[in-house]
Design a protein around this nucleic acid. Structure first.
Length: 799
DNA sequence: CAGTGAGCGAGCTTCCGCTTGACTT
């Protein structure tokens, strides 16, 4: 039996630490937070100083029971959760929920998992910092109040099941406003003038130069080239300037997500899944961090590695400081646990992500790259304008030997790719090969990608490393934003050029407006944002979190009561919630498109209970209006009358199959074929307006084939029991519930008796209908809730 | 989960941060 119980947050960390501490220590994990505000009645007692009502999270009951058992028999319990606000709260909840005693409980912290750091932590225990815990309670309660007060207003005024929150609503706002900027942007064009010269009679080397300013119109560009037809060119000046480049700091969660997105095209959640795998197999340090700090041991190892592999002059020890506000720095930067390991085993995603992390870490401890910048000015006889040729030569590569950071510059600007310039002498005459004036369009602001939105949120101090990926997926799941799929449309541009003493013109095309993978606000997203901006300006203010953080800091310093802060916020806020509930206009985004030619009635588009829809006729009329949902990709803002009229062409009969009619319609989940009471989804490439009878049959047969492949076994004794192939391997399906099959048994050989045994031994999973039904029937009359609501209202009215 | 959309009124939805499994298209 171990004398000491150490509790950390992550199980992978527990394993490592147990090895370091040896047999007198049992190291267990809490798996993050163990307690949270109750879900019902806000989980906060608003009338009693916002007293939180904590309960053990349902999925942590087992963990807590286990920890309690171990704590009881341990001589000393060491609470070793992270040293930040949330970690302190975890320690406090553990203390309370496990019923620990002050005399044998110790709070310890460490920022890196090394023997020295952990032993030193054990030497220097402290008490739980209740001020820091209070700051966390304030944060938690604030988020609950904002989320659970504002969301119901949206259900009432926009659409059910929507959500609002301190973090997600700002994320949506950023996307909506970016889109407005893009729409407002005036795309102008100008002419970029470039020239190519021979630098010697041998005509072997070319010097490329550019006119620093743009020419406004085609006329101006043509005039300029005409002037050059007879001009002489001469090197006016050569200037050389030294420069350097410095490596970036080691990865944090946010910068790792950005680089993995730019270099490998990973979504932020993909990056986190792969990083977690690397972490769990001990290859990298913790992947949810806002710190750029490397441990002394890692820095030492890097120095050693770099010196032996590349030479001493490539090594430069660097300590980085975080630039992001609100960073809590409970961990190290993300780095390989062993820097001598430049490659790891694992699948290709793991190898690539590891490679990225390894290179970034090593580069961060390497010398600057030294470059020489050259600028050659070229004179045009008879003109005052001067052409400029810029070049860059790396004289010492330094960190560039292993790592080059990508940028968000999507146009691959030619400025970025400068090379070495051919040797020329001052006053040397140059022979022109060609001169080109190319029409270039101004670039509208870049829309956010998942990763660039994370970057922006981090800059604003909104959200935490553990929530960036979930936030990005929440705003997509709620339908506030979606990823663009348009790879761009063709655009023509003009070129005027000078070659072999002649002036010519031509037209070329390029792709523009590529929004693939960019976050675009949906109708719902824009509408919800409009509603929130109008009614809850301060909550979705970009500074709201930053201001709250200042107050959390005061609470953590013991200079402010946390419930006082919440009270100061809540009372005016609640007034606006009530006001919006009562007086705010319902936000439907209604737009009159025109007249439906068939009925002569008005055709509208608006947001309904289930999303964007088109409507023919008036809701107030005696005759019910006709409705049709908008297709994916259509929006209230852009849809034309013609497109909207087409939506009412469904359901449409497409023919017969097996003596039964097939109809095509557009449902909640997209277009489908209905046949014999069953539904078959159309492919993305199928157009419901023109799909043929044969194609419908094909779809039906394909689905049937797939269902057959899913099937493995059934039993004579009870045909309701089936062994099926699912996304995660074989499972047993019985009466709409699903049951796991142990990995050791072969699915195809399960006997009826075994199957029954498996079903009996498990609660089963799947449709929640049964549990939900139980819940609702067991619930008593709901009178209580409404009474309480009314009582609350009366109280607020009095004030 | 599969043709909803008004209204009657029930019951439900919802937050952020800390962590992994469990999830069954």
């Amino acid at each position: 039996m171990a004398k000491n119980l150490v509790i950390v947050e992550s199980p992978a960390k527990a394993k490592t630490i147990e090895k370091i501490l040896g047999k007198d220590f049992l190291v267990k994990s809490s798996f993050g937070h163990i307690a949270d505000l109750a879900k019902k009645n806000f989980g906060v007692d608003i009338e009693n100083g916002f007293k939180p009502n904590y309960e053990i999270s349902p999925d942590k009951k087992k963990v807590v029971a286990d920890l309690k058992k171990e704590a009881k028999i341990a001589e000393t319990v060491w609470l070793a959760s992270d040293e930040d606000r949330e970690g302190e709260a975890i320690a406090w909840h553990l203390y309370n929920q496990l019923g620990l005693k002050k005399e044998n409980t110790k709070r310890i912290v460490f920022h890196e998992i090394t023997k020295a750091a952990i032993l030193s932590a054990i030497e220097n225990p402290r008490d739980i910092d209740i001020y820091l815990v209070n700051a966390q309670q304030a944060r938690r309660v604030l988020d609950r109040l904002v989320g659970f007060e504002v969301s119901p207003v949206l259900w009432r005024k926009v659409k059910p099941s929507l959500s609002a929150g301190r973090v997600q609503s700002v994320a949506v706002r950023l996307c909506v406003e970016k889109e407005e900027d893009v729409k407002k942007f005036n795309i102008t064009s100008s002419y970029r003038l470039t020239a190519k010269f021979y630098t010697s009679d041998a005509k072997t080397e070319l010097l490329e130069a550019e006119l620093p300013k743009r020419l406004a119109t085609k006329e101006e560009a043509t005039k300029f080239l005409e002037d050059c037809l007879t001009a002489d060119f001469k090197v006016k000046n050569i200037e050389k300037k030294p420069g350097k480049r410095t490596p970036s700091a080691p990865f944090t969660t946010s910068t790792l997500q950005q680089e993995a997105s730019r270099k490998m095209g990973y979504s932020v959640s993909k990056t986190m899944v792969v990083a977690q795998q690397l972490y769990e197999s001990g290859k990298i340090t913790y992947m949810r961090t806002d710190s750029v700090t490397l441990s002394g041991q890692a820095i030492g190892q890097a120095k050693q590695m770099i010196s032996t592999t590349y030479g001493e002059k490539y090594s430069k020890i660097r300590q980085y400081k975080t630039k992001s506000k609100g960073a809590q720095e409970a961990h190290e930067a993300i780095r390989p646990t062993d820097l001598t390991r430049s490659k790891v085993s694992g699948d290709s995603a793991q190898q690539r992500l590891y490679d990225l992390i390894w290179k970034r870490t090593i580069a961060s401890q390497m010398a600057d790259a030294i470059i020489e910048k050259t600028n050659i000015e070229i004179e045009i006889s008879g003109k005052k304008e001067v052409l400029s040729a810029k070049g860059e030569v790396i004289t010492f590569d330094g960190f560039l030997k292993v790592y080059i950071e990508s940028t968000d510059n999507e146009n691959g600007n030619s400025d970025e790719t400068k090379g070495m310039l051919p040797a020329v002498a001052k006053d040397q005459k140059l022979e022109v090969l060609e001169m080109t004036a190319m029409e270039r369009f101004a670039q509208p602001p870049a829309r956010f990608t998942e990763a660039s939105l994370v970057k922006k949120l981090e800059e604003l101090g909104i959200g935490r490393p553990s929530t960036y990926a979930p936030t990005i997926s929440t705003i997509q799941k709620r339908g506030y934003v979606e990823k663009g799929e348009n790879e761009g449309d063709e655009r023509k541009y003009q070129i005027v050029y000078l070659k072999q003493g002649e002036l010519k013109e031509r037209i070329e095309t390029e792709k523009t407006g590529n929004n693939k993978g960019k976050l675009l606000p949906t109708d719902i997203g824009s509408l919800v944002n409009k509603f929130l901006v109008n009614n809850f300006t301060d909550i979705i203010d970009y500074q709201f979190t930053a201001k709250a953080e200042l107050e959390f800091d005061e609470i953590a310093a013991g200079k402010k009561e946390w419930n006082k802060m919440i009270g100061d916020f809540y009372h005016p806020f609640k007034k606006r919630v009530d006001d919006a509930m009562e007086n705010a206009e319902r936000e439907k985004g209604e737009r009159l498109l025109g007249i439906d030619p068939k009925s002569g009635k008005n055709l509208y588009v608006k947001i309904g209970r289930y999303g964007a829809m088109a409507q023919i006729g008036e809701s107030e009329d005696e005759e019910k209006p006709r409705f049709a949902g908008l297709k994916k990709g259509q929006s209230i803002e852009n849809i034309s009358l013609e497109e909207a009229i087409k939506l009412f062409d469904f359901p449409r009969s497409t023919g017969m199959y097996e003596d039964l009619e097939m109809t095509v319609a557009i449902g909640r989940f997209g277009p489908y074929v209905k046949h014999n009471g069953l539904f078959f989804s159309l492919d993305k490439t199928d157009d419901p307006a023109s799909i043929t009878e044969n194609r419908c049959i094909e779809l039906i047969e394909a689905k049937r084939q797939k269902d057959r492949e899913r099937f493995i076994l059934s039993y004579k004794e009870d045909p309701e029991i089936q062994v099926l192939n699912g996304r995660w391997g074989p499972y047993i399906a019985y009466k709409k519930r699903n049951y796991k099959i142990p990995k050791t048994t072969e699915a195809a050989k399960i006997s009826y008796e075994e199957a029954v045994k498996l079903i009996k031994s498990q609660p089963g999973s799947g449709k929640k209908t049964s549990t939900k039904a139980r819940k609702t029937t067991a619930k008593k009359a709901p009178a209580k809730k409404t009474v309480k609501k009314k009582a609350l209202k009366a109280i607020t009215k009095k004030k």
